[in-house]
Design a protein around this nucleic acid. Structure first.
Lengths: 237, 237
DNA sequence: GTCTATAGACGGATAGAC
DNA sequence: GTCTATCCGTCTATAGAC
């Protein structure tokens, strides 16, 4: 896993050593940039708005990041690290139901807690992935191949129903990220101004249902000892 | 269904009567605009590039469409009509398996044949649906409520497994549209330059598997008389 | 290291010839 | 109805004072 390499690469085009103030400033700028890029896209975002959101004068951006492009790359690199996380539970030796549940919950949590990150990523892919094509074709492709092999092994061993591992990932990503990326549509259909915690719980439960039934696994899980909290269905209103 | 009204509305801000040349020009412009908006987003698209793609001088755009905004609206309105289509097979009296299969196949076909339309729509939602919020909150919301009621009725009658109808739509849309919207990611992971017909067939088969198993329906369908062609699994290489 | 002021490029829109 | 030439606004990026 060259995750560290990816992060390091993202730091490459910024000055090497970090002072305290520098870290704080960069953090604030990156956070603001993610927000603005998420709402407006790359071209739609203006450095002016990012600077305003971050609470710094505009030229300060250019001091820390050489260009709009470089800032965008830095935002993307942070997101890629998030994106690769949580896949390590999907191993041949793991319990399929527990491992899948963990991964789905992690993805749903990411959608709920970092929707802007998800949207920036989605926007990048939607417009051809010009900045992260190499990442997709190398790191991500390898990761999916490995995990799809695990799925195939589970299928071969009769531990889950026959399913294409690669496409299962496509479906799983789509189903989880839609709650962040297409939030405005979700809210419109649900007739709400924004998704609540209860909505999120219901959505998670639904996606888990889809994934588990697709894999022929019992759901709600029946083999779970009382070590876990009993209230699995958290679909209160 | 005010689908007609939506289309008519889209024609509203253009001159009423249509000459042959006018229709041809507008068609070419709309087609080019969809392509450019899909690749670059609203802000990223330039009238220059749209004019070039359409093969007309730039001011001609302004003759047919009063502004970039108006052109974008016209493109969106065409897409909304596509988007609402094919839901009428989902009725209480229909066979759940056949109706769901029809809808999923229609959505997958749309992703394969009109990926740019799907991407423009996705981009619009992704950035807050500022132009089509009213549509989402009225037409789409009503449509989903009606269809979710059908799903609920099927569940109540024991014809499909218990599932949240509204979220089933979210999942279904996400799973089908991901093959158009996130094409660059799909291709990167599959290690191909572009999705082939065989890829599309395999994807369709997978999504149908997911939806059918989620609804507790047999798949591949067992109740289909020999009126349909036998080769259902078209996953050739 | 930080900010004001501005240069330079570009895109949307229009005036006016044909 | 169609296109050439151009205006005006906005945005990225930088020069230079502090």
């Amino acid at each position: 896993m060259s995750l560290r390499a990816i992060i390091d690469k993202s730091l490459g085009d910024r000055p090497a050593a970090k002072g305290r103030i520098r870290q704080r400033q960069e953090g604030a700028i990156l956070k603001a940039a993610e927000k603005v890029f998420a709402r407006a896209g790359y071209q739609g975002a203006t450095l002016n708005e990012i600077a305003e959101t971050a609470g710094v004068p505009k030229p300060t951006l250019h001091y820390y990041f050489s260009s709009k492009e470089a800032l965008y790359r830095a935002v993307l690199d942070n997101i890629l690290a998030l994106w690769l996380a949580e896949t390590d539970t999907l191993t041949v030796d793991a319990d399929p139901a527990a491992a899948l549940e963990h991964y789905v919950r992690a993805k749903m949590r990411l959608s709920a807690e970092r929707p802007d990150a998800s949207r920036v990523f989605a926007n990048e892919i939607l417009h051809g992935a010009g900045h992260i094509g190499d990442f997709l074709r190398s790191e991500l492709r390898e990761l999916v191949r490995d995990r799809a092999d695990v799925i195939a092994r589970w299928v071969a061993d009769g531990r889950i129903a026959p399913v294409d591992g690669t496409h299962l990932f496509f479906t799983l990503w789509a189903a989880t990220q839609t709650y962040a990326d297409f939030d405005s549509q979700i809210c419109a259909v649900l007739g709400k101004a924004r998704q609540t915690a209860a909505d999120h719980a219901r959505a998670t439960d639904h996606v888990l249902t889809v994934v588990m039934r697709t894999c022929g696994l019992p759901w709600p899980r029946t083999d779970v000892p009382p070590t876990l909290p009993e209230a699995r269905h958290t679909c209160s209103t």
